[in-house]
Amino acid sequence: MIASVFGMELRRSRTLIGWMAALSVAYAGIMTLMYPRMAESNDALQAYMKVFPKEIISAFGMQNGLSDVGTFFNLYVFSMLWPVVAAIVGILLATRPVAADLDRGFLELPLSARISRRRYLLAAIGTQFVAMLVLTALTLAIIVGLGPLVGYPFDAGRFAVAGVLLLASGCAIAGVTTLLAVVTLSRGVAGGLVAGVLVIMYLFNAMARIDTSFDWLSYLSAFRYLDPVDAIDTGAWPVQGLVVFATVAVGSWLASLWTFGRRDLIA
């Protein structure tokens, strides 16, 4: 029965995943095609960037220069596109099976059948994980796949390491949203809270980079840990980020399962 719920959740998610995948592939593909021009214009770009204060350059993570593979893809794809895609998918998929389906009067039908609440939610969580995995894999695949065509065969292993970090971050967003959806039973409240907190976290991280006296703010921001530059440039595992995101994701999902099994379900 958990397979039936998982299959139905996947089916209901295919349009969203499809569109987000198309967006990610198109955007990441265009950025990959642009990379050679950036690399070839490195000297001019470096001279141009000297116009800006170091703090601003640092705030946007460009201190290594835009010809650096890790810096380039982090700036244009992983810290720009990915948080938006992960937030949209995470919020929509995590709030649907609990809050949205309860509100529309659907949830009580499957939950009055032979499947337990926790197994039901577990199937929905499985769908969130698969969606994040598919989007991460496609985004990385287009970069690595197009690399040789533009004369830059990127290291697939290093991008895979970065991909694990992206996947973990997406799961963390989905996990926290699931927990908020289970607690509030409101798609609007849960989704709005997550989106708002993500924006605030982004600003915290930027402020901490601009002014070192605000460095403590970065510890309150998930974006401090969403930094795959070293992974792409050196293949080093971003252990700190992985631990933070995986802990938040798994902890939130477990708390969601526990709470969902115990609370009243009334729209």
Partner: peptide
């Protein structure tokens, strides 16, 4: 024992919202 009880029950809710 909700899940076990559900095995013996068919439920028609008021104004169900199908997909």
């Amino acid at each position: 024992d909700a899940t076990r009880a559900h095995a013996s029950m068919a439920y028609l809710s008021s104004d169900p919202g199908y997909l």
